[in-house]
Design a protein around this nucleic acid. Sequence first.
DNA 1: TCGCACAATAAAAACGTTTTTATTTTTCTT
DNA 2: AAGAAAAATAAAAACGTTTTTATTGTGCGA
Lengths: 362, 362
Amino acid sequence: MAEHRSISGRPAPTIKTLAAHTGYSIATISKALRGSPVVTEATREAILTAARELGYQANARGMALRTGKTYQAAVLMPITSAAGYEWDGVEYTQILSGISQALDGSDYRLSVHGYRSFDDACTVARRIADQRLADGLIFSGVLAEDQRIAMLVEADFPFVSLGRCRQPLTYAHVDVDNEWASHAATARLIAGGHRRIALVNAEPRLSYALDRIDGFCRAFREAGLEPSLDLVGGGDLTARFGRDSTLALFKGSAPPTALVCVNEATTLGVLSALEALDRKVGEDVDVIAYDDINVSAYFSPPVTTFYQPIELLGRRLGEFLLLRMAGEDPAGLREVFRPDMIGRQPDDLGGRLGRRAPTLQS
Amino acid sequence: MAEHRSISGRPAPTIKTLAAHTGYSIATISKALRGSPVVTEATREAILTAARELGYQANARGMALRTGKTYQAAVLMPITSAAGYEWDGVEYTQILSGISQALDGSDYRLSVHGYRSFDDACTVARRIADQRLADGLIFSGVLAEDQRIAMLVEADFPFVSLGRCRQPLTYAHVDVDNEWASHAATARLIAGGHRRIALVNAEPRLSYALDRIDGFCRAFREAGLEPSLDLVGGGDLTARFGRDSTLALFKGSAPPTALVCVNEATTLGVLSALEALDRKVGEDVDVIAYDDINVSAYFSPPVTTFYQPIELLGRRLGEFLLLRMAGEDPAGLREVFRPDMIGRQPDDLGGRLGRRAPTLQS
DNA sequence: TCGCACAATAAAAACGTTTTTATTTTTCTT
DNA sequence: AAGAAAAATAAAAACGTTTTTATTGTGCGA
């Protein structure tokens, strides 16, 4: 039995109830409610009043069946196996928060689909598009060659990605200018005299990890130096990875004098390792990090970061998706943020740098 | 036009397609697919084969309209205004991850509904129940007197709460034994000679915050002491709150010699404040924290915590909800976890305690 | 051989919409 | 005042299911 009684106990009013109540036909009721111009202003008024009085709420399932729309925006969320024991993916709360804010005024609801691997994500994305489980899709963790993007562009299914792939496709996306930020961080450290710089990076199949390596290398080349590629490593964005890779780096014959960290969880691990190794940040070693959850200010010592406004990115993702679902061309729906640098060391960088660094602006 | 072409381009097969293909009527097809015992094994076989061949996928909207079910499990997620700038609510990633795991094998999908205040949460919960936007609901942030619980119990709508209210109602829930853990932490500190113990707590209208105060007080009373209630304060679970309240505590005339912290974000702020105040953890002051995202090991100094297996709680929430939606009695769907203590100080607690503390087991 | 129970399947109705097509009412023109 | 054109509304069909009711076919006892 599909009929559902509302919380009050009475069966929920449908279009039929309104028809019986007002004397109009269900066709007219529907048109009046949808704002069709063919109904008189007077009858629309009457119908709207009745709807208000009876507490009519359009039945989402009926609408969905008839129109084929679901009024759902889907988000792909990574369920990492490490999540239970490591601090991974915490920024997703903020992404969801931002998307939710963007969707707030609209008719769309937010549904979250977990995935465990990239292949899994592809399968889920395909199912969502194929079965129209949602009217649009948002996802992150974009690879250099991302099948999801190719597939969804091909199918002309509305989506927005957090991150850009390296294929020449036109699609809506939001991203951080990782190449730029990585270049800026590295150039700063080089200007401070560093030559052995480590990049504690994400897995290199991720598009943004490659962007960071690119910026890293460009900074070295512009200074006429060979990039310290042997100090570039990638892995999970966990504190454990940050700690382990730092310990490994300092076991090497030519350890780094500075580190660029991919996110705050990793940074926490890096700092913990440096403490264990008895290397003082700002004296023995400099650290610059990407800031995703804005907690670096509370680290000891506080770390200079490139601040990524994750929640804002999330909001933009939601806004773009709404526009895409409304039929807007993806070509205009692209935004790349340049992170602001937040200096948190006494001289804005650390002990090895004699001069005060210039303030970087986006 | 509701008909949707699949990714392949052809219109997606429906029950009618199967009927035309197999020669059976749509009624028989439906029954065969649903596993009704009235169809012959042979015909079911034939129909299932055809379904597989044609790649038939039941249309969720059609089912939803007919049955009134949505096959959606809704989760209420706090969208705090602080989220953009403070590290708040990060544990939600793990909760969602756990729920998602539980739902994985089932037919249910996960939808997330954001809310900005408790009143907002009530409104959203009511709408979900009223309009059957989902078949079940999960939420957290339970108040001592929680209208959502009362309302949903009254409406007999399936739900599971993370946390217990203080009203005598029967409902499915998952919780952490906060009274017990708070008692254990406080008793431990008292046994170590502490008398001025601060409790950096959540807002006291939250049920679990009250539980913690209860446990805190009980520990004092059992030792024949007056609880240091002037050192109990509540607020957001942010690093900023941890820092600010610690700074305030040490401005007082009789500052604490030990602190119990409500979660890890707060703890980070507390540690940052203690560092600024030049109080050494483990020497001048002891800290015990609740661990929600398992990152305390990387704090400097590492902090002794009560580990809350958030992802497991999430999984149990999902499992319980599935059972509730299947009609199971809520009386049997209750679980209260006792957090494990993880000692991370050299002597398992800190400098002031001369003896090794006993290992606490749930 | 005839009905008769019973099994298997088919037909029809329903869920609540939207949209297309048909009908009625109003307005305008002459 | 009659007719046509336009406006307003009503009727019907459709979306894809499930479920209730109806129909057909089969084996059985008398």
